[in-house]
Design a protein around this nucleic acid. Structure first.
Lengths: 168, 168
DNA sequence: TAAAAATAGTTTGTATAGAAACTATTTTTT
DNA sequence: AAAAAATAGTTTCTATACAAACTATTTTTA
């Protein structure tokens, strides 16, 4: 199936970059909207939600970091802001005194109870207007994107092609 | 909404959100890498590149804003940083004294000459490892995502039903 | 056991990004 | 012509996000 389309394929890398940036922007706007409506951002909400699912409602800084896949310093900021709002609390250090455990507060859980909708609401409603097959295709594409975006060593990258790189 | 699907489709909205965030993160990391290597970020590079394509190599603040589709205040920051590096210059206001024109400098053009690769290089190389059909699917999916992410009034949103959206 | 290395978090500095409030103009209404 | 509204940008504030440098602790190695 070669796409020797006569121009349809002129849509190239720059296009993809541009599109990705538009998506990023949309998601950011969505996040800000939620932040304004609920006083809490999506990253904060994700962290809070993670804590709620945990044993004893607590997790270490590192665990949150690994879960959200963000830089340690970014996590520090998110936790600090949640702490300032009284939605989480930092616990005193124990055995390994390098490890800081964070826990969700009653107030945090309460807020979470009010906003399961937040995460879903708008985006979900939109997604529900998309048919299942479409959704599946979306998923596949996301996986593809994620796959190659996260390939680190290009040399070792698996080449899935034959007569491909006619990429102009 | 009946999700009586047996698992394959259990991959749902939260997943999509998570995946989008991973993509965002990758693109951001890419941007930082370029910034470190060339002393200029992708948004800055895009703005600079836009100026280069323009008549007399200049554009108004608003035009840049519309092109990059960013908030006015964000543009101010980007332009200011480019100005500080001597890659663009703010021109004195003319007829309509509200309008500020920005122009690219020789140094800016020179840098641009050195970095067409930047935008392409890494991402392009990666994209070249993706087969054309795959790429097409990616494009389609991006369009779908962008479409529904940017639908503002849900009520008025076109509902794509089951058989319609065979988009490909 | 003392030095070196690794691990966990924080701090500092920088960029993107947007909202809200503000200034300065220009255009439209009244 | 004066008042109101719209437009163009900037400033200030806040959040995400990362890297680099740093502190404190623990583990490994010599």
């Amino acid at each position: 199936m070669n796409d020797q389309k006569t121009g349809a394929v002129s849509m190239d890398y720059t296009d993809i970059l541009t599109k990705i940036r538009r998506i990023i922007r949309s998601v950011n706007l969505e996040s800000k909207r939620i932040e304004k409506e609920y006083g809490i951002s999506i990253p904060q909400l994700l962290a809070l939600n993670y804590l709620k699912t945990r044993n004893n409602f607590q997790a270490s800084h590192k665990e949150i970091k690994d879960y959200l896949q963000l830089n340690a310093s970014t996590i520090t900021g998110i936790i600090s802001r949640l702490e300032k709002k009284g939605l989480v609390a930092r616990l005193p250090k124990q055995n390994d005194r390098r490890v800081g455990m964070i826990t969700i507060t009653a107030r945090g859980a309460e807020l979470l109870g009010k906003t399961p909708a937040a995460l879903h609401e708008r985006l979900s409603i939109k997604l529900q207007t998309v048919a299942p097959e479409q959704l599946q295709k979306l998923q596949d594409s996301f996986d593809t994107i994620i796959n190659f975006l996260e390939i680190e060593d290009l040399e070792a990258a698996p080449i899935f092609t034959d007569e491909v790189n006619e990429v102009k």
